[in-house]
C-alpha cells in the first residue's frame, strides 16, 4: 500500500529525514517510536504534503501512485488521513459545514454525487457515537474552544467520517487522560479492516496497550534504526532510548 524508499526531507535547509525506508501493507498497524527530534512528526507532515518541508531525495508510492507528485488535498482524497498533533481552530466554520465540505470534495474526487442531507446527518450521528462525542461539539466551530482531549477526539471523529485507507496518528495520545485514550483507541480499533492500514506515532507504550501494532519501528536521527513486533515497544518502555542510540552510534 505504502512504500517509502530512501526518503530525505529538509525544513529551512536543515535535513530531518535522512534516508527513511518503510513498507506498509493493507491491514497492518505500524507504530513509530523514538526520542524527541528524531523526525517522527516530520514523517507525517511529509507524507501528507505539508509545504513547510522540502523532499530532497527518495520516493514514496501509495496505492501505485507517486505520492510526492500529488497536492495535499489529492493525497487526502486518495485516502490518507492525518490525525494532527496540534489541530488548528477555524473560527466561524461549523464542524457540520466543514465535514460536509470535506466529504463532498472526496466524493467529487471519486466521481460521486454530493452526499444528501439525510445521509450526511445519519453518518454524523453514527460516527459521533463511535467516539462518544458530544452533540454540542459537532455544532461548534472547528476545534474552537475545544479542550486538548476534545480536539483529539474530534480528529478521530473526522477519521471515522472520511474512512481513510491509511491513517496516520501523530501523537494522538499526548495530553489525553486515560478515559479519552480508551475512547480514541476504541475508535481506531473499530475502524480497523483488512483493507486499511495505520501508522501510529507515539512516545509512549501506553497507547499500544489499546491499539496492538503488528510492527514497531524506532526512528532515530531521521532513519528507522530498529524494527520489531509489539515486544519492542515494551523493551523501549523499560530501557529507554539510550541503548538504541549507543547501538546506532557504535556501528
Amino acid at each position: 500500500m505504502l512504500q517509502i524508499k530512501d526518503l530525505h526531507a529538509n525544513i529551512n535547509g536543515k535535513e530531518i529525514l535522512k534516508g527513511l525506508n518503510l513498507t506498509v501493507r493493507p491491514g497492518e498497524i505500524h507504530a513509530i517510536m523514538g526520542p524527541n527530534g528524531a523526525g517522527k512528526s516530520t514523517l507525517s507532515s511529509v507524507l501528507t504534503g505539508n509545504p513547510v518541508f522540502d523532499v530532497t531525495h527518495g520516493e514514496v508510492t501509495f496505492l501505485g501512485k507517486n505520492l510526492l507528485e500529488l497536492a495535499p488535498e489529492e493525497r487526502a482524497n486518495e485516502g490518507i488521513f492525518l490525525s494532527f498533533q496540534y489541530p488548528v481552530e477555524i473560527p466561524g466554520v461549523s464542524m457540520v459545514n466543514f465535514m460536509r465540505t470535506a466529504i463532498n470534495e472526496q466524493r467529487k474526487y471519486r466521481n460521486l454525487p454530493p452526499v444528501s442531507a439525510t445521509d450526511f446527518l445519519r453518518l454524523m450521528r453514527e460516527k459521533k457515537e463511535l467516539v462518544e462525542m458530544d452533540n454540542k461539539l459537532a455544532n461548534r466551530s472547528v476545534n474552537e474552544g475545544f479542550s486538548g482531549g476534545e480536539k483529539k477526539r474530534n480528529e478521530i471523529f473526522q477519521m471515522a467520517m472520511l474512512e481513510p485507507r491509511l491513517s496516520i496518528l501523530d501523537e494522538t495520545d499526548s495530553g489525553l487522560d486515560i478515559d479519552a485514550l480508551r475512547i480514541v483507541a476504541n475508535g481506531v480499533n473499530k475502524l480497523k479492516s483488512p483493507e486499511n492500514a495505520s501508522i501510529i506515532i507515539t512516545h509512549y507504550q501506553r497507547l499500544l496497550e489499546y491499539i496492538v501494532p503488528d510492527f514497531v519501528h524506532v526512528l532515530y536521527d531521521g532513519r528507522i534504526v530498529k524494527s520489531g513486533d509489539k515486544t519492542l515497544a515494551l523493551e523501549l518502555e523499560n530501557k529507554g532510548y539510550d541503548w538504541i542510540k549507543q547501538e546506532v552510534e557504535g556501528k
Binding site: 504534503g49 509545504p51 488535498e73 487526502a76 477555524i90 470535506a102 470534495e105 472520511l162
Partner: peptide, 20 residues
Amino acid sequence: FYCNQRGISTEDAVGLIVNG
C-alpha cells in the same frame, strides 16, 4: 493545510475560512 489534509482545495479553504 488542515483543510487541505481533509481533501479541501486551498481556494475552497480560503472561501470556507473567510465565510466563517
